[in-house]
Nucleic acid binder design. Structure first.
Length: 480
RNA sequence: CGGGGCGUGGCGCAGUUCGGUAGCGCACCUGCUUUGGGAGCAGGGGGUCGCCGGUUCAAAUCCGGCCGCCCCGACCA
């Protein structure tokens, strides 16, 4: 097995950290909970950004940038918002050698500062909808940091929109969750369950929160993206008003939505295996790596020439190719090097292959000798892009099959407890409980209501906690 | 904040019980031989042993204090 990587079945948390280290995705920082995102990890994030940014623009949003520092009083203007965020704020009280008159909060999210500006910019219904997004870093002083999944400072995008009425704002909320769903499925090859959050799990300050929930390799859930209908809560706190066509003052209806570098953690845990990282081709910084194999100088010249030509031809097709020209390393070492880093396709090219007019192809999702096959040199430009598409689909199907095999229908608390030890995963249950029931369930079993899926099975059943007949099915799981 | 563990070259660790002036594996550098699944040999560089204080002829080791990190839990994207 892979050196230096704990088997995921043995210790999942350790495996996760091992993969991050060995694939050189991130390193720990001198400040607790903070993380250095290394070039390879950052390249994945850049691909995530590029793909999402395109989708945001396609749905009419523009990027802007709001400041890192927010007056402390802003946070306090919306009651639920303060309550939710106060415990995890980093606050600057000293600057420029003086104690500040008003402390500055390092943004945990930007609803307040954005509303402050919206209230200045929005005057008329003609100014609406206002559709903004920003790529930024935020800080939340969480108690329990985990690389990528919950770091003190993290990178994300936060969309903030203002609309004339509830209907339009709710459509936006749903639209953006669908954008996240499509991104997760199409680019991350990560199946997700879109749905609504319960009262207890929703965003501090929102009327309704929606989420996409993904299952990680250990059966736990990862909240992978959220979209909130904020109603007029922030508009009221910040007086964000517009004049409608009949000259009446109205509060705007707002949304906010975000995904973060947490997605990189999701990518690791949905697809990673005992050999390390596996990246879906659409997000892989390197989609194809060519490992040249040469015994002597003469062979080296021949092989390098052929390899360079292949690399060039594939690059012309916008395939992200790396030619591993490093010398003095055995092919085996290189194979492992790229496997740990999750490169979807590896081409091995030596004198023998050249003589026979082909390359050896090793797809990362079928590691080892058994998964290898040959492709003729003249078929590469046609086959490689197609293969990348196939791998993308296979990875999604594999992840979906895994999730389905670990999703069960549960009808009682006892059955739930049994399932938690036997088969950690997602549990579909009928649910008519309230926040208190959720708290009780969590303290008893550690699971939480991940979401009320949009896709409901229909029919009714007995609620797992109250015993009442209900038409609402929810997903329970342990969560990161 | 509660529970557990750990601080010794870049990484992983041994040495601490019983004080004697720091070692192993990997990585790194040089050379030669190698190269189809993590190459071999030879040579080499790198550590005030988390910090402060104490005991002692002598402290990684003993004593006192402090700091930090990791894991598990409550909180959370």
């Amino acid at each position: 097995m892979a050196k230096n990587i704990t088997n995921p079945t043995e210790d999942y948390s350790k495996w996760y950290q091992d993969v991050i280290r060995e694939a050189e995705l991130a390193d720990s920082a001198p400040v607790r909970g903070c993380m250095i995102i290394r070039p390879y990890g950052y390249a994945i994030w850049e691909n995530i950004q590029a793909s999402l940014d395109r989708r945001f623009k396609e749905t009419g949003h523009s990027n802007a940038y709001f400041p890192l520092f927010i007056p402390e009083s802003f946070i306090q203007k919306e009651a639920e918002h303060v309550e939710g965020f106060a415990p995890e704020l980093a606050v600057v009280t000293q600057a420029g050698g003086k104690t500040l008159d008003e402390p500055l909060v390092v943004r945990p999210t930007s609803e307040t500062i954005i509303n402050h500006m919206f209230s200045k910019w929005i005057n008329s219904y003609r100014d609406l909808p206002m559709l903004l997004n920003q790529w930024a870093n935020v800080v939340r002083w969480e108690m329990r940091p985990r690389a990528f999944l919950r770091t003190t400072e993290f990178l994300w995008q936060e969309g903030h929109t203002a609309h004339a009425d509830e209907k339009e704002a709710r459509e936006e909320t749903e639209r953006m969750l669908r954008v996240y769903e499509d991104f997760a499925v199409t680019d991350m090859a990560m199946p997700v369950i879109p749905g609504r959050k319960t009262e207890r799990e929703k965003f501090a300050g929102a009327v309704d929160s929606y989420t996409i929930e993904a299952m990680m390799g250990n059966g736990w859930a990862l909240q992978s993206g959220t979209s909130h209908y904020l109603g007029t809560n922030f508009a009221k706190a910040f007086n964000t008003l517009y004049l409608d066509s009949s000259n009446q003052q109205q509060f705007v209806h707002q949304t906010s939505w975000g995904v973060s570098t947490r997605l990189v953690g999701g990518l690791i845990m949905v697809h990673g295996d005992e050999h390390g990282l596996r990246l879906p081709p659409r997000l892989a910084p390197i989609q194809v790596v060519i490992v040249p194999i040469a015994r002597d100088d003469e062979a080296r010249v021949r092989v390098m020439e052929a390899a360079s030509k292949i690399a060039e031809e594939l690059r012309d097709l916008d395939v992200r190719v790396e030619l591993d020209t490093r010398e003095g390393m055995s092919p085996g070492f290189k194979f492992n090097h790229w496997e740990v880093r999750g490169v979807p396709l590896r081409l091995e090219l030596g004198p023998r292959d050249l003589d026979e007019g082909h390359v050896m192809v090793s797809p990362r999702n079928k590691p080892g000798r058994d998964g290898k096959f040959t492709l003729s040199l003249d078929s590469l430009t046609e086959r490689i892009p197609a293969l990348l598409d196939e791998i993308q689909k296979e990875m999604f199907n594999e992840a979906l099959a895994k999730r389905e095999s670990r999703t069960m229908d549960i009808t009682s608390i006892d059955q739930l407890k049994q399932a938690l030890t036997d088969a950690p995963g997602f549990y579909r249950v009928w649910w008519d409980g309230d926040s208190e029931d959720e708290v009780r369930l969590q303290s008893e079993t550690k699971v939480t209501v991940r979401c009320i899926p949009w896709d409901q099975p229909g029919g009714t059943g007995k609620c797992i906690v109250t015993g009442r007949e209900t038409a609402r099915m929810v997903i329970l799981a342990r969560a990161y």
